[in-house]
Simulated assay, not measured.
Amino acid sequence: MKKLLLALFSLVLLVGCQTKNSETNSDSGNKTLDTITVAFLPNEGSGTISTVDQMLINELQKALGDGVKINGIVCDDYSAVTEAMLTGTAQIAWESGATFVATKMEDDAIIPLVTYGVDGDVNQASYPAFIATNKANEADFAGKTKEEQYSQLVDKSFSFVSATSTSGRLVPTTTLFMAFGPEGNGKVTTKTQVFEKTTKDGGIFSEVQFGGNHPGSVQLIVENKVYAGAFCCKYGDDYMDQLYIIDEVDVPNGPLWVNSDYINAEMQEAIINHFVAMTPENSVENFFDNENGFFFESDGAGANRFVKIPEGFYDFLYEMYKD
Rank of each mutant, 00 (worst) to 15 (best):
K187W: 13
D77T: 01
A7D: 09
K20G: 11
G312D: 09
D323L: 00
Q124P: 11
V81S: 03
G184W: 09
D201R: 00
A301P: 12
M55H: 12
M1P: 13
N58W: 10
I309C: 09
V81M: 03
G47F: 14
K2N: 13
G65R: 01
E269C: 02
L33E: 13
K234D: 15
L220A: 06
S167C: 11
G88A: 01
K308E: 13
G181L: 01
I272H: 08
L220E: 09
A228K: 04
Y150T: 05
N43Q: 12
L11F: 08
M278H: 04
G29Y: 09
S151Y: 10
D323T: 01
D241F: 07
L56C: 07
F287H: 05
E223Q: 05
G45S: 06
G45C: 05
T32E: 14
V12F: 02
G16N: 04
P128A: 05
L243G: 10
Y116C: 01
S151Q: 14
V118I: 08
V15G: 13
G47N: 11
V208H: 08
L41G: 13
E207V: 00
W257R: 00
G184C: 05
S159N: 11
V188Q: 07
A228F: 13
H274T: 05
G312Y: 11
N21I: 04
I271V: 06
K197E: 15
F231G: 02
D201Q: 03
V114N: 04
T164A: 07
A93M: 04
E183Q: 04
V251I: 14
F294W: 09
N224H: 09
A163H: 12
S28P: 15
D107G: 06
Y314N: 01
V154E: 14
N185C: 07
A90Q: 02
P255A: 03
